[in-house]
């Protein structure tokens, strides 16, 4: 008799499984979790802390907060930050001071660990929430974070 019992139980479990998928089939419109990605670009908002790429914010006078202390360069495990600096005469104080020439960021080598941003004492670099990082040429992934002709924001000290 267990032969027929097995068949009965087997069919019952199969129907139970089908009821689960069937339920979702009927509610498929509501339950769809797919994002219509390129269409919803306008409404798509990433979380504030999302690590997209490292950026260096500039204010309206084309000034940034990077003093060139190279702490980020040291903190980076992959060598994706390179800072080219020079000692120049500060026009305000007239003293020789460390100034960045280029803050180079290799996005292609970055693992988004966030250690550089933790290490930065002046909050010069931040995370941007941009995640569309693909480019046609690998060279484009090497970015210069400070804008051309930008200066250190006055009052930012190491």
């Amino acid at each position: 008799m267990s032969y027929f019992g097995d068949i009965y139980r087997g069919i019952k479990t199969l129907l139970t499984g089908m009821s689960v998928t069937g339920k979702y089939f009927l509610h498929s419109r509501k339950g769809a979790i797919t994002q219509q990605y390129p269409d919803n670009r306008d409404t798509l908002k990433m979380f504030d802390r999302f690590r997209g790429e490292v950026v260096m914010p500039h204010n309206e006078n084309n000034e940034h907060r990077c003093t060139g202390c190279q702490k980020c360069e040291l903190a980076c495990p992959n060598g994706s930050i390179e800072i080219i600096w020079d000692r120049q005469i500060d026009p305000e104080s007239g003293k020789k001071k460390k100034m960045i020439d280029q803050h180079i960021y290799h996005l292609g080598m970055c693992t988004m660990c966030g250690l550089c941003i933790e290490a930065c004492p002046t909050d010069a670099i931040l995370w941007a929430q941009n995640f569309e990082n693909s480019v046609y040429n690998r060279a484009y992934l090497t970015k210069v974070l400070n804008k051309p002709g930008s200066k250190l924001m006055p009052g930012v000290e190491e």
Binding site: M46, F47, D48, R49, F50, R51, T111, M112, C113, G114, L115, W127
Partner: peptide, 12 residues
């Protein structure tokens, strides 16, 4: 994870 840690998989 993404809201708190900033990443979905490799949080660090």
């Amino acid at each position: 994870f993404e809201e708190t840690c900033g990443a979905r998989l490799t949080m660090n």
